[in-house]
Design a protein around this nucleic acid. Structure first.
Length: 290
DNA sequence: AGCTCTTCCTGAAAGC
DNA sequence: TGCTTTCAGGAAGAGC
């Protein structure tokens, strides 16, 4: 489940090898997660990679103008969203191809950039600079860049549950289920509390907790839960530091009470009921099923 | 407009 | 043992 720290880890890995390389050839397997497969074949060959950036949970591979079948002058960005199980890694063609590898981007040094995605919840698309601008406008601010004041303003005016707000990419870009749960536990805020009902002191605590958790996770090269691997194929180490995520029934590291699990905002949520008191007016949402 | 819920997909793990 | 069910979840799209 690549979230901001995992995507940042992949981006840093790719940044060490991709800039300056050109894409010579594109091969695709299943394409149901690619917006416009024909555009990849058409626009990418001959293009040189300028930079690799992160935009929320998107990996942005900037390609220089020129190249492509049309010899197009506009700059193009290869955007890759890893979804749940996506992996993007540079491999030698001799190395065995992992199952569910659906994208091969051959490079001018003989290596291959490979995209592997078991569940195909990921997404690949091309964006020109206008497309980047409108994507940026659609997304909220990066949680590592947003100021405390702006964070409090954005969350404090919303009536949705705070966990739903953290997961909403138009509020903040990059937070997913793991780091939402971990930062809420650190800030001692129940995930079902409503944004507008949080005190400023609580919102400030959440802002700081989120920053600390994300920075620590980047320092550990992300969390490997299901099958996250970075650009070199190595797992992250932050799962050892998870305090509540997937620790249902285990003691809260702060107070010893058993960690609870409930579905909140449509996601499995983990929290300590003693450290994170639930909202009084609305009991914790229980999942109903048809 | 704001918010919640369902749906897509596969494999691991739990349940029977 | 082997089959079935549940769970994992990012985000588009439907529905309220």
């Amino acid at each position: 489940m690549p979230e901001l720290p995992e995507v940042e880890t992949v981006v840093r890995g790719l940044r060490r090898v991709l800039p300056g390389r050109s894409i010579t050839r594109v091969r695709l397997g299943k394409t149901d997660f690619i917006d416009d497969p024909a555009a990849l074949y058409e626009a990418l060959p001959g293009r040189r990679i300028a930079r690799v950036e992160r935009l929320g949970k998107f990996i942005q591979i900037e390609l220089e103008p020129g190249g492509g079948a049309q010899g197009c002058e506009a700059r193009v960005n290869l955007m890759v969203h890893l979804g749940m199980t996506g992996r993007l890694a540079v491999r030698s063609p001799d190395e065995p191809v992992a199952p569910h590898t659906h994208g091969f981007f051959h490079l001018d040094d003989g290596q291959e950039l490979r995209y592997t995605d078991i569940r195909r919840f990921g997404r690949i698309l091309l964006l020109d600079d206008d497309g980047i601008t409108s994507l940026q406008a659609r997304l909220g601010q990066d949680p590592l860049e947003i100021t405390a004041q702006e964070f409090c303003r954005q969350l404090g005016r919303r009536r949705a549950g705070v966990k739903a707000l953290l997961l909403n990419q138009t509020v903040l870009r990059g937070v997913g289920n793991i780091y939402a749960d971990e930062s809420l536990w650190r800030a001692r805020i129940h995930p079902a509390r409503l944004g507008a009902r949080l005190k400023v002191a609580e919102l400030r605590r959440l802002w700081q907790s989120l920053q600390r958790v994300l920075r620590a996770a980047i320092g550990s090269r992300g969390s490997s839960i299901s099958n996250f691997l970075d650009a070199e194929g190595k797992p992250g180490g932050y799962q050892r530091w998870h305090r509540v995520y997937r620790r249902t029934g285990k003691p809260c590291p702060r107070c010893g009470a058993a960690i609870r699990r409930a579905t909140i905002a449509g996601r499995s949520s983990h929290y300590c009921l003693r450290c994170q008191p639930p909202p009084r007016s609305r009991p914790v949402a229980k999942r109903r099923r048809a």
